[in-house]
C-alpha cells in the first residue's frame, strides 16, 4: 500500500464518482487521508482535490473487482457504499488495495480490521433493510399507498424489489425522510427519485377504519401473563415505532365526520405504561 498523504479527495457523491477516486489513488500511487462527498461540509486545512466523475474510468475499476477478486467482493463494495459507516470511502479504498493483493482470498480475511469493519457495516445495513421490510407501514392517501421511513443506512434500493413484486398492481410510494429519496411504483413503471419533503394527504374514513382494526388486533393479541417489554424492544427497536401505525395517535380523517366513540377498549394498565409517546406528524 502506498504512503498515506494528507490530501482529501472530494467526489460528487455517486458510486461512480467514488470508483474514480479509486482510479486516482492507484494512478497517482497515493493514499488520500479521506474521501468525502461534495455535499458534506468539511472544515479542514488539508488540501482538497476534486475528483471528476468519468464513466469510463469508473467502469474499468468496476470490472476489475470481479476479475481480480470475486463476485462476493463486488457485492461487499456495492453494499458498503450504502452504509452509514463513518469514513466508509476510506475503508472501501483500503479494501481495494487488500483485494488486488490477496485476490479472491480477501473475502476470507474476516479478522482483518478493514474487512471486519466493512462486513459489520454491511450487516447493519442488511439487518436494517430486513427490519424496514417488516415494520414499514402503508396508509392509503388519495388512492395511493404511502409509507414513510427513517433508516440510518440507505436501504431503499435493497427493499424496493420486495415491494414491487409483492404489490405489482398497486400505486405506492416509500419515502425515506433521512436520505430524501423516494421509491415510486405504478403498475407501468417504477424508480427511485430524489425528494425534498412530502406533504401527506389526509386519510379517509376507510383508511381510519382499518387503522383502528389493526390497533385493536395489536393490543388484543398480547398475552397479559407473558408481558415482556424488554423482549419486544430488543426485537423491535424504538426508533422504528414512530413510523408504525400501531403506535401512532389517530389521524383526523377527511371528510370530517361526527366522531364515533372509539370502540377500542383501553389496554390493561401495565401495558399502557409501556406505550410509546405518540408522535404527531
Amino acid at each position: 500500500m502506498p504512503q498515506r498523504t494528507n490530501i482529501i479527495y472530494e467526489y460528487d457523491g455517486s458510486f461512480e464518482g467514488f470508483l474514480c477516486c479509486v482510479f486516482e489513488s492507484f494512478e497517482k500511487k497515493e493514499l488520500p487521508c479521506d474521501i468525502i462527498p461534495q455535499t458534506q461540509e468539511q472544515m479542514t486545512l488539508a488540501p482538497v482535490r476534486e475528483i471528476t466523475t468519468d464513466r469510463k474510468k469508473a467502469a474499468r475499476v468496476y470490472r476489475s473487482i470481479e476479475r481480480k477478486m470475486s463476485v462476493s467482493a463486488r457485492e461487499l463494495i456495492e453494499l458498503s457504499f450504502l452504509t452509514c459507516l463513518p469514513q466508509k470511502e476510506r475503508d472501501m479504498l483500503d479494501f481495494f488495495y487488500l483485494g488486488y493483493h490477496y485476490g479472491r482470498q480477501v473475502m476470507n480475511r474476516l479478522t482483518d480490521p478493514t474487512v471486519d469493519r466493512l462486513l459489520k457495516g454491511v450487516k447493519h445495513l442488511t439487518n436494517e433493510a430486513h427490519l424496514t421490510k417488516e415494520f414499514l407501514r402503508f396508509s392509503t392517501r388519495n388512492g395511493m399507498l404511502v409509507a414513510k421511513i427513517g433508516p440510518k443506512n440507505n436501504v431503499l434500493s435493497l427493499i424496493k424489489d420486495h415491494f414491487a413484486t409483492r404489490f405489482p398492481n398497486e400505486t405506492f410510494l416509500i419515502y425515506d425522510c433521512k436520505h430524501h429519496l423516494a421509491f415510486l411504483h405504478t403498475p407501468r413503471q417504477s424508480g427511485i427519485i430524489p425528494v425534498e419533503d412530502i406533504e401527506l394527504e389526509q386519510i379517509d374514513e376507510e383508511e381510519r377504519h382499518y387503522q383502528r382494526l389493526w390497533k385493536l388486533f395489536y393490543r388484543t393479541i398480547a398475552i397479559r401473563e407473558r408481558y415482556n417489554p424488554r423482549c419486544r424492544m430488543s426485537h423491535m427497536p424504538k426508533r422504528y415505532w414512530e413510523y408504525m401505525t400501531e403506535f401512532q395517535e389517530e389521524e383526523p380523517a377527511s371528510p370530517q365526520m361526527e366522531t364515533i366513540a372509539s370502540p377500542i377498549t383501553p389496554p390493561p394498565l401495565e401495558m399502557q405504561n409501556s406505550a410509546p409517546k405518540p408522535k404527531i406528524e
Partner: peptide, 9 residues
C-alpha cells in the same frame, strides 16, 4: 415478522 406485541412475541 411485522410487529412484536407487548409480550415480546
Amino acid at each position: 415478522c411485522h410487529s412484536f406485541s407487548a409480550d415480546g412475541r
